[in-house]
Design a protein around this nucleic acid. Structure first.
Length: 274
DNA sequence: CACGCCTCCTGTGCGC
DNA sequence: TGCGCACAGGAGGCGT
């Protein structure tokens, strides 16, 4: 589900309701995907930030709540039944964690496929969250430098799309926006050699595609919802992802779907050359 | 070290 | 209608 634009849209709705709140109690399913989450109990949320696809909430006492929504994770606020002990939702087996707040509400984490992760760590200590520890620069910040990106791209021999998905060259690009950005920059997703001109085009395309998707509050196919339950509006603007067989908007050649690095990949065989 | 493959889950849609 | 299979927006772990 959520790539950077979706997580950013969640963050913007989450922050007003969560910043400044004390977490009164914590319940979660006992799985290794929920790391030291109980340490959040009694702590106050100082702010709600984001790096790539991770939500980062500094807590008082130098702790930090880290949330990753995986493929199907959603967050929502619900009225808190003060009489009920925190526990599984008898009506919804997909609720995996609940954070009771000090304002008679709770934050509910629902995750059908259970690829999401929640953790409480020492602030800034991401040693147990490898992707976060090695996360590349924020794509919409000055830290995402076109020259450096081009040099890193020149140095790797990995196919460009799987390389983007590692989160190391740049934070927050997933399967949808990788296909979209590669199409926009006319870069073949399996290319292992991307020259400086195309690298800069790809850098610009990543920014463009992500900024436009944030503007539309993300892409909803099925599971992705914002905190208020609303869908994003970007799905109807997709040019490559999910459009196999349809004519390329640039050259009318039918878009082709291939399997690359274990992910479905759609591209234009005519205008995305190796 | 870098890369590539498999795995973790559940739900849905499609072909037979 | 029912069954089995492929696939889905992510990333961690392991083998080579």
């Amino acid at each position: 589900m959520p790539e950077l634009p979706e997580v950013e849209s969640v963050r913007r709705q989450l922050a007003p309701g969560l910043s400044g709140r004390r977490i009164a109690a914590v319940w979660h399913h006992t799985q290794p995907r929920y790391l030291d989450l109980h340490l959040a109990a009694g702590r106050t949320v100082l702010s709600v930030g984001r790096r790539g696809k991770f939500l980062l909430c500094p807590l008082d006492t130098q702790l930090e709540l880290v949330l990753h929504l995986g493929m199907t994770g959603t967050l929502r606020f619900a009225p808190l039944d003060a009489a009920a002990a925190p526990g599984p939702d008898p009506l919804d087996p997909h609720v995996h964690a609940r954070l009771a707040l000090d304002d008679a509400r709770e934050l509910v984490f629902r995750d059908v496929r259970q690829f999401g992760r929640l953790a409480v760590v020492r602030a800034g200590d991401y040693a147990r969250i490898p992707t976060l520890a090695q996360l590349g620069p924020e794509p919409l910040s000055d830290a995402f430098d076109p020259g450096r990106f081009a040099r890193q791209l020149a140095a790797t021999r990995a196919p460009v799309k799987p390389w983007l998905l590692t989160q190391r060259p740049v934070a927050g690009v997933g399967n949808i926006y990788a296909d979209e950005a590669l199409w926009l920059a006319r870069v073949h997703p399996a290319s292992r050699r991307v020259g400086p001109r195309r690298a800069r085009a790809l850098h610009a395309a990543i920014r463009r595609v992500l900024a436009d998707a944030i503007e539309r509050e993300g892409t909803t196919f099925r599971d992705y919802r914002m905190v208020n339950g609303a869908s994003g509006r970007n799905a109807s603007h997709l040019v490559a992802y999910g459009q196999a067989g349809r004519p390329c908007p640039r050259c009318r050649t039918p878009l082709r779907k291939v399997w690359l690095g274990g992910r479905g990949t759609t591209f234009c065989p005519a205008c995305q050359r190796r």
